[in-house]
Design a protein around this nucleic acid. Sequence first.
DNA 1: CATGAATGAGAGTTCATTCAT
DNA 2: GATGAATGAACTCTCATTCAT
Lengths: 226, 226, 226, 226
Amino acid sequence: MAKRPPSPVAAPVAESAAERQARRRERQRTVADVRRALMLDAARAAFFELGLEGTSMREIAKRAGYTPGAIYSYFTSKEEIYGALLGESLERLNAAVAAAVAGTAGEQCLRAGALAFYGFYREQPRDLDLGFYLFRGMQPRGLTPELNRRLNTRLRDALSPCEEALRQLGMGEADAVAETTALFAHIVGLLVLSHTGRIRMFRQSTHALFARYLDALVARARPPVL
Amino acid sequence: MAKRPPSPVAAPVAESAAERQARRRERQRTVADVRRALMLDAARAAFFELGLEGTSMREIAKRAGYTPGAIYSYFTSKEEIYGALLGESLERLNAAVAAAVAGTAGEQCLRAGALAFYGFYREQPRDLDLGFYLFRGMQPRGLTPELNRRLNTRLRDALSPCEEALRQLGMGEADAVAETTALFAHIVGLLVLSHTGRIRMFRQSTHALFARYLDALVARARPPVL
Amino acid sequence: MAKRPPSPVAAPVAESAAERQARRRERQRTVADVRRALMLDAARAAFFELGLEGTSMREIAKRAGYTPGAIYSYFTSKEEIYGALLGESLERLNAAVAAAVAGTAGEQCLRAGALAFYGFYREQPRDLDLGFYLFRGMQPRGLTPELNRRLNTRLRDALSPCEEALRQLGMGEADAVAETTALFAHIVGLLVLSHTGRIRMFRQSTHALFARYLDALVARARPPVL
Amino acid sequence: MAKRPPSPVAAPVAESAAERQARRRERQRTVADVRRALMLDAARAAFFELGLEGTSMREIAKRAGYTPGAIYSYFTSKEEIYGALLGESLERLNAAVAAAVAGTAGEQCLRAGALAFYGFYREQPRDLDLGFYLFRGMQPRGLTPELNRRLNTRLRDALSPCEEALRQLGMGEADAVAETTALFAHIVGLLVLSHTGRIRMFRQSTHALFARYLDALVARARPPVL
DNA sequence: CATGAATGAGAGTTCATTCAT
DNA sequence: GATGAATGAACTCTCATTCAT
């Protein structure tokens, strides 16, 4: 991070005007970076506390100890802040995963890495919001509890044929429910990834992935006969 | 109230005042229903085009051919509109699933039902937004394509240990990538369901479900030695 | 109230067309009066419960069992309702006073009448609102309790010279406070009456009345020397 | 932060950067105060012209030469404006009273103070509205002059027993009318003070005060026989 | 670089009143 | 006479962003 290269042979004499200017520019850039980071800290704290859409530029500025206008010296828009925050979130994610898999291999590595990834977002949902452009932090606001229950029921209704089929295929009660829930989650996950364009980075076809999941599920439900 | 003098010789076809009033009321209710549906159509179109949070009451009114105040004759708030729209979305979902599984059983039913569920949201992402309160607020605008690519890379980096582990366990190249992507989707799906409270309706523990998924994945990666 | 004059020589034969029409008109007017009264009842109840400015035409209509438009068949505007309500309030006031003074005379009458007048408004502040065009029922809304206290203090400060003077003139502590409060009330009362034009009906000069009050107060404070 | 290179030969008159900044801050605060006062002026003018509830933030902004949003840099809500205006009104009241009683004592002080208090509100009724939350909402518009006259008559009717009693007790015609009017004003004043909670600040009972007034009135009406 | 006042657009909601039916 | 949908204007307040200083 220290951008000033150690001058190997420090000239005892006065530095040239050009050198002085270069050093000054560098120092300024460092100061600017610090302040930028300070604002990002404020923004992250605000986002995590108030949600993406509950956070105004005023709020960020206040928390950073600046006035609204000052932010625009470091970021061109609110969205740029969002982008910077997302980048930083991903660095933390990578660090968490790397720490978890350090010194492991094979199955242990798979389990550790997957759990770290899962745990990262599990513990800090706001990072998930950040990662998938989710406003409002996915809270059911304004829906009466009763309406919410009714809607949940209908959602579950749509999955009941699958649940019933799993039982028909010989699955136990508890397993059928668990597998239906997992199926539901898998579908939602695939779709969120698909709609946010995240799945493209794996060059995978959403359809193919889903077909694959279904095959494995059927295999689990109808165990090898022999 | 009956202003019509009693006709001494009531024609058998003439309807009574009460009947007329009843018919009038019904007609009005129908008209009201039609207009309510009209507004819902406008709201759905607006939501689908502008996103949930980009849609204002003014916009809905304009699309429906009304002034803002008129909406409040049919809905008490913006959130009620959202609720109505969500309810209707779920009805369409159930209809789609029911049609797909009609006359099937066992594995065929499982596959048909799951595919219908998946396909419903696949084809109309806004229904997914609706169903999971996904307010997509900031999207690409602030994210330059180049930044987006860089972020995607970092996201993928976080999953590379798992991918590598799968290969170590003997999985082929293509399978390893596919399973990693599927793992990613499964995690995101579980988390979205968890944060929106949808998983509660199955009375399942997110952690247990994830452990189960991991076990199955390991089993797939390291086939029975027999 | 019965508007139909008793027909002295009731013709046993059928009444003329003109008579019939007259009777019908009268009946209709009676019906209309009843409905008007019904709406006034609803309006009064709403005003008394929600205050003058918290009451909307919708609210009045709902309480009367009608739709908003219907009101306009009986009143040309919200303000006309207010006028009618005020008239009716004054009738109740007169009835209350009349009942109180019935069978009294002299001092007893004075005391009974004044107390009845006072008690009428004391018990039902909304009638006071009505009588003096006071919106919001005179509640200090939106002022923090602390600010309210501060302002009250400043108001009292403005009266403290008078209080001090009363003590200087020989009045006891308690009496001085009481007389200051009474002075305050008298001033406010005179001004409210003056600004609402109510004092004109007595053809009295506000100034003269206030001078008179002051003279009496001085006399009370400095009792006759002899 | 100091961008000015240190002047090797500091002129004794040159102010330091800190001084300059302090001066700048003060100037800005003064400017802000001026603008705040400007907005208060606009608000007062609007209130005085349109009444408290007829004045919107838009109106205030327009009169101050700003857009609605600008007001919120100086006041957090409409009610805060109201509070500030009321506070300022009370300061003017205190100044007026203080000026009037300066150098007086005893009876002279009592008369001067009371008259100043009375005169302050007499000359500017809107200050009275401000001080007692008198939102005059409906006023004459809906009350035709003729209806107003009729209502005034009924109001006077309610007081006629008292007027008559005063005459019975030996009071002259003119005095009876004056005392009745004064009684009316006193009642209204007490009630307004009571309903706005202003009487509480004197820790006086409205009832006791009214009884006291009545006693004094009776004493005036029936002079000591001696 | 930082300020902070100001903009301008827009948010959801309410209301008295009108008028075709 | 009554309905009730609809209007149109208004309401308070919030926000990202700009810009002279």
